[in-house]
Structures are given as structure tokens and as C-alpha cells.
Design a binder for these strands. Structure first.
Lengths: 159, 159
DNA sequence: TTGACATCGTTCATGATGTGAACTATATTA
DNA sequence: TAATATAGTTCACATCATGAACGATGTCAA
């Protein structure tokens, strides 16, 4: 009986691991698609869009900060910023305290764009919520939190 | 009192939508990172790795099938396949029934690689499961299923 | 104070990921 | 058999990203 239960447990674990893999993969794909659609809709490449969204709660960001927040090389940040400047969405200015650093900030046009995108994203996630039974909502959110911390543990373990 | 409750409800909805956005974003980033690590570990670019994994349960795939499954243009599939052929992981052969189509299949080396990757991914997701309290596991999985179907509904609604 | 070292941003070479149009060679079908 | 559709390739182009080298500053210790 104990043996049977153990075999059963292993099977369940296997099933759950595979299910997890499948579900996470699908969620990831869904997001990828969503980001691509979003970028197209707002006529800004994904990397530039991500950069714009960093200015929520920041008036100025430096190149290094942007490359850190976007998790890309600073050479990449330079290019992204350059493209946003060309589009008139952000502007560069000198840091009065340090001649090496350039302060990047949103132009009025950039601010408007950020607000539009924020609104779009918020609406989208509200719609997502709308499609979830109200009773399940907190459960889904706490499950995601559980999953997140579990993913972080695994990541920390690997590193 | 009713007014107070309604305001409260709106606040909760807002909070939940933002939380959902944050959590989904983090999960997505985590996956992105994981795929990148995986590709580096197995010394195969991500796109090629994804292509290899398509052969689970398929002896042969055509270029069109691959481009469909990977959700990329067929020109992209051609290049991915070409690179995998160069690396000796897959091989091309003629379809005896249709001279236009080429049947792609794993070489023995490719099969070994796929098994290795499968094993790695399975282990990873088991570790993920290990970090989740057994009592919560089914809850997390069903929450992900709920989320997935909700995402699909939203996607369908937009299109 | 000055010399060694660190930091910020830029440029460049390189590679991965991906699309769409044009093209060749085969099917299919009216 | 002529028009049309399909499979795969090639090419031009765009996006995303890294790492090395470099110039201009800033910092700090001898």
C-alpha cells in the first residue's frame, strides 16, 4: 500500500511538473505576442516602448540607469535613447553635477505617449480580471505570487 | 454604505489589475531569462532550440509545419533549419510523395540533444514544484489554467 | 597636486531574431 | 493544358543585443 502510494505520488509530481511547464510556456507566449501587438499599435519598437515606461515615477534617468533597468548593455541603451530622441519622445540634458552623465527625460509628446500606453495596459489587465470569476481573483493573484517566489528560489539555487 | 462599497470595489479592481500586470511581467521576465540561460547552456540559439523541441512526438516535420509551430515566416524557418543542419542536429530528406516538400528529422546527435534538454527542463520544473507547498500545488496549477483561458478570451476579444 | 583608476556615454563589429517580396520548382484543378 | 496554389529558398531590411575600445570626465591616495 505504501509502495502504491509512493508510485502514485511520483506520477502526480511528474504530471504536475509537465503541466507547469506547459502552462508557463503558454503564458510566456501569450505575453510575447501581447508585447509585439502593443509595440505595433503604438508604432514604437518593443525595446523603445519598454524604455519609455521606465519613466513612471522618474523625471530623469541616466543612460546607466536605463541600461540597468532594461537589463541590457549600455551600448544598447545609447541606441535606444538615440532612437527615442530622433522620434522626439525623450530629450538629453547635461547633469550639472557631473559632466559625464546625461539626464534623459520625457518630452511632452513622450509624456502623452506614456500615458496612452499606461492606459492601454491598465485596461487590458482589467479585461483580464473581468474574465476571471470574482471569487477566484485573489486566488489567482496569490498563486502567481507563490509561483514567482518559487521561480526566484530556483533561480537563486542555480546561480 | 452602498457608495462606500462601490468605491471600495473599484479600488480593489484597480489594485488587482495592477498586481496582475506586475506579476505577469515578472513571470515573463523570469521565463525570458531562463530561455536565454538554457540556450547558452546547450550552445544552441534559442530559435534553434525551440525548433529542436518540436520533434517531440514527430519523426518528420516539413518546413511549413516548423514555421507554423514556431510561429515565424517560412523564410525564417529555412534559416533555422539550415543552421541546425550545419550543426549536424537535423537532416533534410525528400518527401517521396511530393517533390516540393522536404522532410526534416533529428539526427542521432540531435535526438541525444533533445533528450538532454527535455531532461533539464523537466528537472527544472520539478524544482519549481519542490519550492511550492504541496498543499498549494493543485491550486497554483488551476490558477494558471484560469489565467490562461482568461488571456485567450481577451486575445479573442481584441481580434 | 598629480597620477592611477573608475565611471559615463559613444562607436563599431558582430551575431541572433524576424518579416515580406520575389523567385524556382513542383502540384492541383478547372 | 493553362491558371493557380504550395513548398522551399534567397535577399534586403529592421530589430534586439553584446562586448571591446575609446574619449571625456571624476575620484582618491601617495
Amino acid at each position: 500500500m505504501n509502495d502504491v502510494n509512493q508510485t502514485n505520488d511520483v506520477r502526480i509530481l511528474e504530471y504536475q511538473a509537465n503541466k507547469l511547464q506547459e502552462l508557463i510556456g503558454e503564458l510566456h507566449n501569450c505575453c510575447k505576442e501581447r508585447y509585439a501587438t502593443e509595440a505595433k499599435a503604438f508604432k514604437v519598437p518593443q525595446a523603445e516602448l519598454r524604455c519609455l515606461m521606465l519613466f513612471e515615477g522618474h523625471k530623469y534617468l541616466t543612460g546607466i540607469q536605463i541600461s540597468g533597468l532594461l537589463d541590457v548593455a549600455k551600448s544598447r541603451a545609447t541606441v535606444i535613447i538615440e532612437n527615442l530622441v530622433k522620434k522626439g519622445l525623450v530629450q538629453r540634458s547635461q547633469d550639472p553635477n557631473d559632466a559625464r552623465v546625461k539626464l534623459i527625460s520625457l518630452t511632452p509628446v513622450g509624456q502623452r505617449k506614456v500615458r496612452e500606453i499606461e492606459e492601454f495596459m491598465f485596461t487590458l489587465h482589467q479585461q483580464l480580471l473581468d474574465h476571471i470569476d470574482p471569487i477566484q481573483r485573489t486566488g489567482v493573484i496569490s498563486a502567481l505570487e507563490t509561483l514567482r517566489s518559487s521561480m526566484e528560489s530556483v533561480k537563486a539555487q542555480l546561480a
